[in-house]
């Protein structure tokens, strides 16, 4: 066998050949999750890029049972699957996963997600955070970072783009007192893998939010995806944190770099580098990063 030959078993959870863009962070993150999860799982998926690029009928990239219903109800559908498996006495053998984008999770599906947490379903929910509604053409979501230009929070003569910071859903999830919450990044692969593994080893509701760069949505060269995610973590804008039963139990330390290094290569922040006022916005972004560093004690 030559070195470049790959064989994929059909039992594998997430198969190649799907239609994600080159450099799609969430395609890699989902593959990671599915490799860790193994074949004894059922997955529910919200409407969004992942659902669209993985299941154009009659094709499917999913090697495990998978269901898509609507944009906002993946957590409720997963809860229904869990309830059914419980009734059938199969919950000890089969894990229930849910996938949603940041829009599906933080915005339109927030109520069902909170309900699923609060009722204590044995479901591992993975939010693929690419920081906008990518599937519909890069509109802002509650997860879009401050000053990012999107198609509905565009930079313009009177605007620096998104005027609000990201919604802190991991903290809100943790406030439900659920057993496990974590933020991860596809660019810090081993860390994300460990968190997925940990989440799947725990009974009850789990929430893992993975930062997943999106080349067309953020506007950078697709070969830089992993680099983009790494810079976000290293500047403090995407703190990698774990909560257990509502308490922070572990953070990933960093040697902070200036936020400009992360912002500069991305088209969504390009406008900030074109004026003095833009620099003032960059200073505000630096303050957000500094606040994260302070809040979670990220300094090495």
């Amino acid at each position: 066998m030559s070195k470049t030959e790959f064989t994929y078993e059909l039992t594998q959870g997430f198969l190649p050949g799907h239609r994600a863009c080159a450099g799609c962070g969430q395609a890699s993150a989902v593959r990671l999750v599915m490799e860790v999860a193994g074949p004894q799982v059922v997955a529910a998926n919200a409407t969004g890029c992942l659902e669209v690029f993985s299941t154009p009928y009659p094709e499917s990239a999913w090697g495990v049972p998978w269901v898509h219903s609507l944009f906002e109800n993946a957590a409720a559908v997963a809860a229904g699957i869990e309830a059914a498996l419980k009734h059938q006495g199969k919950l000890d053998d089969i894990g229930v996963l849910a996938f949603g984008g940041d829009g599906a999770t933080l915005d339109i599906g927030f109520g069902p997600l909170s309900g699923m947490f609060e009722r204590g379903h044995d479901v591992a929910y993975f939010c693929m955070d690419n920081e906008a509604y990518m599937n519909t053409g890069v509109q802002r979501s509650g997860s879009t970072p401050f000053a990012a230009s999107t198609t509905t929070s565009p930079a313009g003569r009177e605007s620096f783009g998104e005027d609000r910071p990201k919604k802190d859903l991991p903290a809100i999830a943790a406030a439900h007192g659920i057993p496990y919450v974590a933020t991860g990044s596809i660019s810090v692969f081993a860390d994300l893998r460990r968190k997925v593994k940990k989440a799947l080893s725990i009974r009850g509701p789990k929430y893992v939010q993975a930062h997943v760069p999106c080349p067309p949505g953020w506007g950078y060269d697709e070969k830089l995806s992993i680099e983009m995610g790494r810079l976000a973590v290293d500047c403090g804008l995407y703190p990698l944190v774990e909560w257990e039963n509502g308490e922070v139990t572990r953070v990933r330390k960093i040697k902070p770099i200036p936020v400009e290094e992360y912002l500069k290569p991305q088209r969504r922040f390009r406008h900030l580098f074109r004026s003095e006022d833009g620099k003032a916005q960059i200073a505000k972004i630096q303050e957000l990063a500094d606040a994260n560093i302070e809040k979670y004690g990220l300094l090495e």
């Binding site: 998926n45 659902e51 669209v52 299941t55 154009p56 009928y57 009659p58 094709e59 499917s60 999913w62 090697g63 495990v64 049972p65 998978w66 269901v67 898509h68 219903s69």
Partner: peptide, 8 residues
């Protein structure tokens, strides 16, 4: 016996 349900 895995099926994909709800494809577009």
């Amino acid at each position: 016996d895995p099926y994909t349900m709800g494809a577009f």
